[in-house]
Design a binder for these strands. Structure first.
Ligand SMILES: Nc1ncnc2c1ncn2[C@@H]1O[C@H](COP(=O)(O)OP(=O)(O)OP(=O)(O)O)[C@@H](O)[C@H]1O
Length: 752
DNA sequence: AGTATCCCTGGCACA
DNA sequence: CAGGGATACT
């Protein structure tokens, strides 16, 4: 037996001495406080494995990671390290851990375990309703702003009662009433938003000492990754859970705190020692990820921030490729040139999946997607409009959510007339009235109340809907498999028929998506035979952008800087380093926010292992207008000897090659051009002669129709009223948004 | 009364 | 580029 005994985890992993110390230390609160790429995540993983190996049961560990994906990966790593089942281990994001606890305990705070978790769209629709009911003009307080204010309160664990005490002035009073009514509505429909998951857990533990005590005894260790991005509610939770034994193990880096706008507080990590007495701090100083070139650049970037803890950070990966800073004319050239650079790396020995293009906002991805498609570079886009945010998917989920929680009126309102059943505002209002009288939800009213007071058309619609729900609820009660229920939803409601009747490309895509949803549910059920429908619904609402990201064979990764946190790539392109983008326009007013933007640059730069290229452009397309843009103030503050500057703004691409490229867009264009207007090919020639090759693929496909929306370099947006002439002489009469009417030569007007 | 359609505006982080 | 509002159509 002795021969079979593996050496301890700690001896099987590559760890430096500080890492080892941190893992072995067992004397109370610990903070691993270190810069990027120093192996913090590795320590956390090893710590968990070590604790389990030492005899802690997985169920005694509470480990919070920043994304579900990180949790999954960590779990897999740990499973590979020790031969002990991890069943019962509490590992996940704070949100999913809290949801798990609340499913078990929410009865104590007036919720049913079948409560629904609302995503941000749901939140917005509730706030809109609240504003309407309170007669607040949504131009005086935009819903998103109201929501932001409410969310800030919740993230800071400020109850409406507490807010009332500190509320000053008219605006605060309005927010207070929104906050109160919003919470009332959530509660009425057994809904919790993302913030509630955290603050209701804290509330529960504070209100019910016996429950708190139970969990304090269950969890022997509280482990937290990315501690710098915890908010007040999360901090309170950690504090409450660890109070008895003080076994908190946190890792983080104040320089990587980038979620302040979501309530995270860097102060949490900076005052860790004060909050947790007798904390032992572990400092990791060796960066194992990046070359000196990359690291010096990143260090210089973050050194601009004054409000930070000094840290050492060095690497023995000497030298490496110089960091490059590129200047481009506009975002199209930026995308095009990055694509060319990537293409040549990929012809070398770098695989696409080891390359990432990182940008500040999702909107910036479009130019890169187009450039990559033209260059035939496979890519994966992380974020943007996710699968579970698509309208058809949300419709399906709304039906399912209602089966789990019939009080969920947000979902009811979403689907009661989808597909169309002849029910509109009036019908909704009547039903709401009935529901109000009976003190029940809309669906409950539909199912139990007499609705004969309604008009005949509405009655028909409602009775159809009622029948559908009766059948569905029956299926759910019988414990039918989730995907079977969904298939019935699609069948009974006629949702599928609605889509198949429509033979547009759009509708076909939706059918495909729904099929994918069915598949996902089948797959999920196989993986989790014992889980229920509401578990599925919970999981899908808590999915984040990175969670659904999988590196694809040879595909370049496109994502926001926020998404890139904790990841690493051999080559990294940081694009759009301009004032107004990074730092983002909205965050240039406040020093704290500017510092957070700077940290974003630091996070981005430190993702690179071997090669880092940055870029900024002179002009950028924004909502259809070309606006000037200047290099980021952060770049200006980095010593010039730490990078090579390349001005590409006069570079006009590999013109000759372009013509020979037998690419698909060209063919598509020829065929459509000849189909539509015989004059088009001539125009295409014209365009190719007049306009530099580098950025004008879309110009080639120019075709005009009456009524088409266009934008013009000088006049901005407008609509085509009439077309005369053809070929080079085609003239357009355009009505611009400022009311002016102009006649233009088609070949000079740039369209959107 | 309800629905389809056109037009206009507002606006990029994310669990 | 989508969600909301006015408008015209069934
Ligand atoms: N002791 C070590 N020896 C060699 N390589 C290591 C060691 N510890 C970690 N690494 C490697 O260094 C890289 C960074 O590690 P890790 O992701 O754990 O760092 P981190 O501190 O969490 O980074 P970040 O804060 O940027 O997310 C990884 O590729 C990891 O495999």
């Amino acid at each position: 037996m002795i021969y079979n005994k593996k050496p301890a985890v700690i001896d099987r992993m590559i760890l430096n001495s500080v890492q080892r110390d941190a893992i072995l230390y067992d004397g109370g609160p610990q903070l691993v406080f270190a810069g990027a790429g120093t192996g913090k995540t590795r320590v956390l993983t090893a710590k968990i494995a070590h604790l389990i190996e030492k005899g802690y049961r997985p169920g005694q560990l509470f480990a919070a990671t920043f994304t579900n994906k990180a949790a999954r990966e960590m779990r897999t790593r740990i499973e590979g390290l020790i031969d002990i089942s991890l069943d019962g281990l509490w590992i996940g994001t704070f949100h999913s851990l809290c949801a798990r606890m609340l499913r078990l305990e929410c009865r104590h705070i007036g919720y049913m375990p079948s409560f629904t978790i609302y995503d941000s769209d749901d939140q917005v629709s509730i706030v809109k309703k609240v504003l309407r009911e309170l007669d607040i003009d949504d131009r005086s307080i935009p819903p998103r702003q109201a929501l932001g204010a409410v969310s800030r309160c919740k993230n800071a664990c400020i109850t409406p009662e507490e807010f009332e005490k500190q509320a000053k002035g008219y605006y605060d009073q309005e927010i207070l009433s929104v906050y109160k009514l919003y919470q009332k509505k959530l509660r009425e429909q057994q809904g919790m938003d993302f913030d509630d998951l955290l603050c209701n857990t804290v509330y529960l533990l504070r209100q019910k000492p016996e429950i708190l005590q139970r969990y304090q005894e269950i969890f022997k260790y509280i482990l937290v990754d990315e501690y710098q991005d915890t908010n007040v509610a999360q901090f309170q939770l950690i504090k409450l859970l660890s109070k008895k034994h003080g076994r908190v193990f946190a890792v983080g880096d104040d320089d990587q705190s980038i979620y302040g706008w979501r309530g995270a507080q860097v102060e949490n990590i900076l005052s860790f020692e004060r909050e947790f007495p007798d904390t032992k701090i572990f400092k990791l100083e060796q960066n194992y990820r990046s070359t000196t070139a990359v690291l010096n650049f990143a260090n210089a970037a973050i050194a601009q921030n004054l409000n930070r803890a000094q840290k050492q950070l060095w690497t023995d990966r000497q030298g490496g490729e110089q960091v490059i800073v590129n200047r481009f004319r506009d975002d199209r050239q930026e995308a095009q040139c990055v694509a060319e650079k990537i293409l040549s790396s990929m012809n070398g020995k770098i695989a696409g999946q080891d390359i990432a293009v990182l940008y500040r906002t999702n909107a910036q991805s479009r130019a890169f997607e187009e450039a990559f498609r033209r260059a035939r570079i496979p890519y994966v886009l992380v974020g943007g409009i996710g699968f579970y945010e698509r309208a058809e998917i949300k419709d399906c989920l709304a039906y399912l959510r209602l089966l789990v929680n019939p009080k969920d009126s947000v979902s009811f309102e979403r689907i009661f007339n989808v597909p169309s059943r002849g029910l509109g505002d009036k019908a909704h209002e009547s039903l709401a009235l009935v529901a109000q009288n009976k003190q029940c939800s809309l669906l409950e009213a539909l199912l139990t109340c007499d609705i004969s007071s309604l008009g005949s058309r509405a009655q028909k619609g409602f009775s159809d809907l009622k029948t559908i729900f009766e059948l569905l609820i029956d299926l759910e009660k019988k414990g039918e498999k989730p995907h079977e229920i969904l298939l019935q939803v699609l069948q009974l409601t006629g949702y599928m028929d609605m889509l198949t009747a429509d033979d547009s490309e759009e509708a076909r895509g939706r059918v495909e998506n729904i099929n994918e949803l069915v598949n996902a549910m089948v797959f999920w059920k196989n993986e989790n035979p014992s889980k229920k429908l509401f578990d599925f619904l919970e999981e899908v609402t808590l999915i984040s952008d990175v969670d659904s990201w999988n590196k694809k064979e040879n595909a370049v990764n496109l994502m926001t800087l926020h998404c890139a946190k904790g990841l690493e790539f051999k080559h990294v392109y940081l694009v759009g380093l301009e004032d107004g983008i990074l730092p983002s326009r909205q965050n240039t007013d406040d020093e704290r926010k500017i510092e957070e933007e700077c940290r974003l640059l630091y996070v981005g730069a430190t993702r690179a292992m071997e090669k880092l290229e940055c870029s900024h452009v002179d002009q950028r397309w924004r909502f259809g207008d070309l606006i000037p843009s200047s290099p980021s103030r952060f770049l200006n503050a980095i010593p010039e000897n730490l990078y090579v500057f390349r001005d590409n703004s006069n570079y006009f691409g590999q013109t000759a090659q372009r013509n020979e490229l037998p690419s698909k867009p060209v063919r598509a264009l020829n065929s459509s051009a000849t189909l539509r207007t015989p004059a088009a090919p001539a125009k295409q020639q014209q365009v190719q002669r007049n306009i530099p090759q580098y950025d004008d693929f879309s110009q080639d496909t120019v075709e005009f129709r009456m009524g088409q929306h266009i934008r013009h370099k000088v006049y901005g947006r407008g609509r085509i009223l009439s077309i005369s002439g053809f070929g080079e002489d085609m003239k357009l009469t355009v009505l611009f948004n400022d009311g002016s009417r102009k006649k233009l030569m088609a070949k000079f007007a740039s369209i959107e």
